[in-house]
Write a protein that binds this DNA or RNA. Structure first.
Lengths: 226, 226
DNA sequence: TCGACGGTTGGTACTCAGTATCGTAACTAT
DNA sequence: ATAGTTACGATACTGAGTACCAACCGTCGA
């Protein structure tokens, strides 16, 4: 089993960071424990923080691929599956993901770095959703809200899994996205509007009231979301 | 008017960053141009990035105060006003805010730092909203969605103002929050549900269909959001 | 007027992350 | 076998950030 230098560096970094703290650990120590030179460390990782972070490039690429193949009908499915790809990646990491979570919880430098990484996913989602919604009312704003909501739903589930609060993260992601996604479908309805009349009411009056209640926003008529 | 060393350092930093780039500017240059020593720079700012960033501590404090005084009835008002406080701060900064925006757009280090700062506002909002919603269905998730949505709405407006795309940012913030906030009021309604019957329909059948359409989520009956 | 004192400053020295460069060993293809 | 490629180690350098110390400047009380 020829462990690569890269793998040994990652392992050494996790051990030292957890053992003696992030700030108290120098890159030279990590390299030394991995049995390699300091140069090699910086050849594999851009900086001290990146050692313990996932390979976001590859993951972002896969997410981008999934989002790019979203026809007009399957946009919501694309978002759900894209979020699922990311979640599956972390689930597969298992103990590594949990160790990183512990580090990010205590080391500000790593936490900030991770926040910046999360923002890259938001940007990626946002770019695609913008092309879907920009022409609609409040489209640009809604695009940003939806993009961030997808990522928040994902992180909500991931965090609960990292803390051992759920055994079925995939199902929980589905439920969470159901809460987060309605803004994608149309301008938000502050509350469901139900009109019930028995025929004795003046039709025009009801229509006027409905129009007032709905304001300028268009709305779908019919019996619910089908 | 005796400009303080701190003010001179900030001015010098903006000038040098915009003139010759962030990376090409050393702290020693900034200090030198401000007519002060390098030590003094680090006495006033934690690092090279912080020179051009706003004083978030004070602003976070004011936002926290506003959120803390939110009765059960005025929660939405509290969120709107809290967002308004932040927006007003940036508007008052004027040219400085625009210069920072240019820098954050081009310098990754500053951009990441600012993202981390934004997250502090999200956290602050989130903490308060959690105490409001945690007991409701999907409360914890909705709290995080709402917190982030408020900040996104704010940033959406701020960015448009920074780019000179709006003359009435305060009004735009109101509109944007109207789009972003419905999730605060209750579990999301995927789409407005409208039932119209002329009395000839079987009432029980309609009721059954309504119940199906609404699923498990409760919903308010009545004529719109009044 | 004098001296003690707290706060701000400038200077020096140090650690360490990150960059650049060079020589070398191992592997590959022709 | 040779030329090209890739990964590695070593060295030297820049610059951010920290620690420490000495000088200066105001104020207050004696």
């Amino acid at each position: 089993m020829p462990t690569t230098a890269r793998d040994r560096l990652v392992a050494a970094a996790f051990e030292l960071f957890e053992g003696q703290g992030y700030d108290a650990t120098t890159v030279e120590e990590i390299a030394s424990r991995a049995g390699t030179g300091r140069s090699t460390f910086f050849r594999h990782f851009r900086g001290k923080e990146d050692v313990v972070l996932p390979d976001h490039e590859a993951l972002l690429g896969r997410v981008a691929d999934r989002l790019a193949t979203a026809g007009a009908g399957g946009r919501e499915v694309a978002l759900r599956e894209a979020a699922g790809i990311v979640l599956a990646h972390y689930l597969a990491e298992g103990a590594t993901a949990r160790a990183r979570y512990r580090l990010a919880s205590t080391v500000p430098a790593i936490r900030d770095r991770e926040i910046a990484s999360v923002q890259r996913y938001v940007r990626l989602f946002s770019q695609h959703i913008h092309t879907w919604l920009d022409a609609e009312p409040d489209g640009p704003l809604r695009a940003e809200l939806v993009a961030s909501s997808v990522v928040i739903a994902h992180n909500h589930v991931l965090r609960r899994w990292l803390r051992g609060e759920t055994d079925a993260p995939e199902a929980l992601l589905d439920q969470s996205l159901a809460v987060a996604l309605p803004l994608l479908r149309g301008p938000a309805a502050p509350a469901p509007t139900i009109v019930i009349t028995d025929g004795s009411a003046d039709v025009e009056q009801v229509v006027a009231q409905v129009r007032d209640a709905l304001g300028k926003n268009g709305a779908r008529a019919g019996l619910g979301p089908a």
